Simulated scan of single mutants.
Amino acid sequence: MTTALLVAALLMGFFGSPHCLGMCGGLVTAFGLSMKDISPAKRRALVFTYHFGRLSSYALLGLLAGFIGTTVLEPLMKGNSLPRILLGSVLVFVGVTMLGAPFLNKLERFGMRFWQYLSPLRQKVFPLNTFPRALTAGLLWGFLPCGLVYGALLIAVVAHNPLGGAALMFVFGLGTVPMLVATHETVGWLREKIGRFHLRQLNGAIMVLSGLAVVAIPMVMANMHGGHGGGHGQMDHGSHSAMMSDADSTGHHDMSQMDHDMTPAMDSTVDHSMHDMSDDAMSHHAHHEPSS
Rank of each mutant, 00 (worst) to 15 (best):
S81H: 05
H232R: 12
A213K: 08
S249P: 00
P162M: 10
L87A: 10
A167S: 13
A167L: 15
F103T: 05
G231P: 01
H253E: 03
M235L: 14
A265V: 14
H253V: 10
R133C: 12
R113K: 14
M282A: 14
V92T: 05
G195K: 13
M221R: 13
D279C: 05
T97C: 11
A159M: 11
L86A: 14
G13F: 01
W115N: 04
L104G: 00
L64Y: 12
L121C: 04
F52Y: 11
C24G: 12
H51Q: 07
R191K: 14
T49N: 06
R113S: 07
F14Q: 10
S34Y: 11
D236A: 15
M274V: 13
L5K: 01
I85G: 00
V7K: 06
G88I: 06
T3H: 04
V125S: 13
P102S: 04
V181L: 14
M207P: 01
F110L: 13
H232L: 15
H260C: 07
H228Q: 09
G95P: 02
I68D: 06
A134H: 02
A281E: 09
G66S: 11
L86W: 11
G26N: 09
M258E: 09
W115A: 07
T70R: 14
V92P: 00
S239Y: 11
L174W: 05
G188D: 11
H288Y: 10
M219I: 12
G251T: 12
I85P: 00
E192C: 02
S245N: 13
L99T: 00
V208E: 04
T130E: 15
Q234D: 05
Q257S: 12
A286V: 04
H19G: 03
A65P: 04
D236I: 03
H253Q: 08
F114G: 08
P120M: 09
I206N: 10
F31N: 05
M35A: 07
A166K: 04
M258W: 15
M255S: 10
A213P: 03
S268N: 12
L180V: 10
H252S: 09
F48C: 11
G16I: 02
I68V: 13
L27I: 15
V7P: 02
L128C: 11
R122A: 05
V215E: 02
V177M: 15
S256L: 13
L99Y: 01
Y117P: 00
L202C: 12
M207R: 01
V149T: 09
E185P: 00
M224D: 10
P18Q: 14
V158P: 03
L55S: 10
R133V: 04
L21P: 06
A45D: 07
G195F: 09
F126A: 12
S283M: 09
H198W: 09
L55V: 04
T70H: 12
Y117L: 01
M23E: 07
E108W: 05
G204S: 02
Q257C: 05
L174I: 13
M179F: 08
S273P: 01
G147I: 02
G251M: 15
H225V: 06
A30F: 05
G26P: 06
M12D: 06
I217T: 15
H285C: 07
L91V: 00
V47Y: 01
S39Q: 11
S34P: 06
V181Q: 04
R133W: 01
L168R: 01
P40H: 04
I217N: 13
P102K: 02
L86S: 07
G233C: 03
A101G: 01
T183V: 03
H19T: 03
L61A: 13
F93T: 00
L27E: 06
L174T: 03
V171E: 07
